[in-house]
């Protein structure tokens, strides 16, 4: 399967993301990373599946759980880690931190810290792409919790409207990881079939297994192709699971049981894809070990780079509040 052949490279990147996040948690505990830290472990197949379907000039927005988006879009791990370390060599020059990774050169228009607040930005960006006459597409990752914000509903209604004239090449990806912080979907949404909520705005949607890379990827390719061809919004609910707490400080997790987490971990997206690859003869023990070792070295190099990099200069404090003089 040619399909699976290319999945191998995404497997490699998913392994890197997982290893990277393990290291960020360690660095957080050591006090090397400050603020809030939201890791992506468990959800790798969602970002990998969708980013694999993006063209080089497509763009994306996401929430604060954003490390994987940057890494999978190709941002250097050293620059991502340096941002978390608050260093000048960081993706956002140490000014944004974990929640505000940005790599506009790679079409990544940012991580945002207010739940749902980035959805209207993605809506406008999608409109701008079409207005400028391109066939580029905008992807907007959002969590299940963001679906309960006013920003979501206002944006979706407008997306439905703008799509009527082909001015909204927007792909909405609900990463339903089961919890908005500690509040489960069942306790926060009147309907738990989240994909169905898009029907109110005449936006086609489907619900897929967000733990299986191949499944996500196929849904992503359909959605991206549809948005590109039609200029209409489309949505996918990827059902996934957050292996870690909401943030690095969310250790006790009284809102869910250990058994539930263990159950979810049995469908680890990386192991699932690894199983597919092994079954197809595309991966063996030696190759898998080499991939893990490659990730290990990349992450350790990112940490060394971040440790050795200088913090932003004092002049950076007042830089970039405004652009060129009005």
């Amino acid at each position: 399967m040619a399909d699976l052949q290319s999945a191998l490279s995404w497997y490699r990147r998913m392994v890197l993301v997982r290893r990277f996040e393990e290291e960020t948690e360690r660095a957080f505990r050591r006090g090397k990373i400050g603020g809030y830290l939201h890791v992506y472990s468990g959800q790798e197949a969602v970002a990998a599946g969708f980013i694999s379907a993006m063209r080089g000039d497509d763009i994306c927005f996401t929430s604060y759980r954003d490390h994987a988006i940057a890494l999978l879009r190709g941002s250097p791990p050293g620059a991502v880690m340096a941002e978390l370390y608050g260093k000048a060599a960081g993706l956002a020059r140490g000014k944004g931190g974990s929640m505000h990774l940005f790599d506009v050169g790679r079409g990544f228009y940012g991580g945002y810290g207010i739940v749902g607040g980035h959805i209207p930005l993605a809506l406008g960006a999608a409109y701008a792409l079409r207005y400028q006459g391109s066939d580029r597409v905008c992807l907007c990752f959002l969590g299940d919790g963001a679906m309960n914000t006013g920003a979501f509903h206002e944006s979706l209604n407008m997306a439905g409207l703008w799509g009527q004239t082909g001015h909204c090449p927007l792909v909405l990806i609900v990463e339903n990881n089961g919890y908005a912080m500690g509040t489960s979907v069942a306790r926060s949404s009147a309907v738990t079939d989240l994909a169905s909520r898009f029907t109110a705005y005449a936006i086609p949607s489907e619900r897929v297994d967000g733990m299986d890379f191949q499944t996500v990827r196929l849904a992503a390719e359909r959605a991206v192709a549809d948005a590109r061809a039609s200029g209409r919004p489309t949505a996918v609910e990827a059902v996934t699971y957050r292996f870690a707490g909401h943030g690095a400080a969310d250790v006790v997790q009284p809102y869910r049981s250990k058994e539930e987490v263990e159950q979810a971990r049995r469908r680890d997206p990386i192991r699932l894809l690894e199983g597919h690859l092994r079954a197809a003869g595309l991966l063996d023990d030696a190759a898998a070990e080499a991939i893990r070792e490659e990730a290990e070295q990349a992450v350790l190099a990112a940490v060394r780079h971040s440790e050795d990099s200088p913090p932003p200069s004092p002049e950076a404090l007042h830089a970039d509040v405004y652009g060129k003089e009005a």
Binding site: P120, G124, A128, L129, N157, M158
Partner: peptide, 28 residues
């Protein structure tokens, strides 16, 4: 209508969308 956009009563939506447009190089 592509340059003069009547919006629904959605201040979050249209202000946010305008910010996104500006990030992509328009001058809303």
């Amino acid at each position: 209508p592509r340059r003069v956009i009547d919006t629904p009563t959605s201040e979050i939506g249209f202000v946010g969308a305008a910010i996104g447009m500006a990030m992509l190089g328009l001058r809303p």
